[in-house]
């Protein structure tokens, strides 16, 4: 820090970042801002405290509530994602990382409603070859509804008590998910079980590793497990090093709050 300060003594560390961001696309005749500034700013943000989405006083994560799923749907997805990304000795699984909350929140908004996808007909899901991609008229909310219903219908076949997917044993849950993946289950709509499974796997991984502001990756534990530093401003000093450099992760909250 002190060395960097020497290099750019005219800069006030706090106020500089925004000015720098503003000016870095300098127009004709502007001032040259060199690489040293970037490292200075990097230092700045790493000094900021991480607060996250938790309310420290109450110990409550207000993000743990539902925007889209009902409770039974949530339980099903909570169980299914844990099989896709389970807790192991290496680190936490989907449940602990709050992945099902992440998925719930995503489905409630533009992603769930396919608002930035071309959803104009006519649709020919049966005629489409897989390489043509998304061809159902159903949006992701609807695909999830069908998929969740089918997970529970399959679960009910496992015994006379007609159990819910969430109440099955680990082995039984995995068995059903494998059948979904291999397209052995029929959903009651214009979408295949493997399509639902691929989508479920994709959003599970997202929930493990997306910035915690989205509701998953609780306390950046997904990143910590993978030694991913999250949002950093600069890796110039790391790249030439032969040994692995561990860096405590930062979320975008640090960028916003600084």
């Amino acid at each position: 820090m002190s060395e960097q300060k020497k290099k750019a003594p005219y800069l006030d560390k706090r106020s500089s970042r925004r000015t720098f961001i503003k000016n870095s696309g300098l127009t004709v005749g502007g001032v040259v801002l060199g690489g040293a500034l970037g490292s200075l700013l990097g230092k700045d943000s790493s000094e900021t405290n991480e607060t996250g989405v938790h309310s420290a006083a109450a110990g409550v994560n207000f993000n743990q509530a539902l925007m889209y799923f009902d409770k039974a749907q949530f339980d099903t997805i909570d169980a299914a994602t844990e099989q896709i990304f389970p807790k192991t000795e290496v680190g936490p699984g989907a449940k602990e990382l709050l992945v099902a909350y992440y998925i719930d929140h995503q489905l409630a908004g533009s992603f769930g409603l396919n608002s930035r996808e071309y959803m104009t007909g006519p649709f020919f899901p049966a005629e489409a070859v897989p390489q043509q991609g998304y061809q159902t008229h159903l949006n992701r909310q609807q695909v999830f509804n069908l998929g969740i219903t089918a997970l529970n219908t399959e679960a009910a076949k496992k015994s006379d008590e007609k159990p819910k997917f969430a109440n099955l044993t680990e082995e039984q849950q995995i068995e059903i998910l494998k059948d979904f993946e291999a397209d052995k289950v029929k959903l009651s709509g214009a979408v295949s079980s493997s399509f639902f499974f691929t989508l479920l796997r994709k959003v599970t991984i997202e929930g493990v590793y997306a910035d915690p502001m989205y509701g998953g990756n609780k306390d950046m534990a997904g990143w910590k497990m993978k030694n991913f530093p999250g949002h950093q401003t600069n890796y110039m000093n790391v790249l030439e090093k032969d040994e692995f450099v561990k860096i405590a992760p930062m979320s975008l909250n640090s960028q916003h709050q600084h």
Binding site: S24, G25, L26, T27, V28, G29, G30, V31, V32, L33, G34, G35, L37, G38, S39, G42, Q232, T233, N234, Y235, M236, V238, L239
Partner: peptide, 17 residues
């Protein structure tokens, strides 16, 4: 590295972010 192009546009170096 910091660079000024023939149009007089000055830009800073990549931070390898």
């Amino acid at each position: 590295q910091p660079y000024t192009n023939p149009d007089g546009i000055a830009r800073s170096a990549c931070q390898y972010c």
